[in-house]
Design a protein around this nucleic acid. Structure first.
Lengths: 112, 112
DNA sequence: ATCAAGGTTAGCCATGTGGCTATCTATCGG
DNA sequence: CCGATAGATAGCCACATGGCTAACCTTGAT
């Protein structure tokens, strides 16, 4: 696994997001993952290493083929963090709303 | 707004995530945002610019104070992408499950 | 035993990132 | 008007990132 820094860093590149999207459909060998990307293999392998280091991907080699698969825990970690912020944000809007309603109520009370 | 690259890049740093978490509680001026972070103001301002460029934060200056607020659309964009991958992933597991069940059924049929 | 396929490693290069200091501008309070 | 406050700009530096080529190592097929 890894920390939020590397998990989000993993997502901050279109090549790496494409790999994740591909692996969400199921495991694949390195060469198949690399095929759609117009870059030399070593360059692509760096991206793959970033994804492994950040916990997005795990792989094992059998024979000369390395098969990669997605680790959804990474996605969960990312979604959890985002969800937490969203909850805070919405709670704040609720409080703001309650506050504004209170003001309104007080004005009504004054009026009465 | 901005693209996924910059949105996720914005999240790939603890200082910037802390700013986002703080702003989820409500708007704040630059100096208040900077206070918890042990770094010089110009360094902090760079992070803030990254967040503005990526669409996470918007700000306006009145007098000598710049007030920053969160733009939740950025969070939505990020969550949407992650959610899409998760849906694909789960759909794939469902298909896999159905496939395995089919195998099982065929074996049962053979047995009968 | 060889050759091709599938990665892997090493090393180079340009650019980006994240930190700093020093300096500057613009506002607010008195 | 003067000093203090809030932030902005410029420029420097070290290291990370993302690309490349060239050479290498295993494994599989013939």
């Amino acid at each position: 696994m890894a920390n939020l820094d590397s998990i989000f860093h993993g997502l901050a590149d279109p090549t790496r997001r494409a790999v994740i999207a591909r692996l969400a459909q199921g495991p694949a060998p390195v060469s198949e993952l690399a095929a759609p990307h117009a870059m030399a293999l070593p360059s692509f392998l760096k991206h793959l290493k970033v994804l492994e280091a950040s916990g997005w991907v795990e792989s094992e080699k059998s024979g000369r083929v390395r098969t990669c698969r997605l680790r959804p825990e990474a996605a969960k970690t990312a979604e959890d963090w985002l969800g937490r912020q969203r909850r805070d944000w919405e709670a704040r809007l609720d409080r703001l709303d309650a506050f504004l309603t209170d003001i309104e109520d007080e004005r009504d009370t004054d009026d009465a």
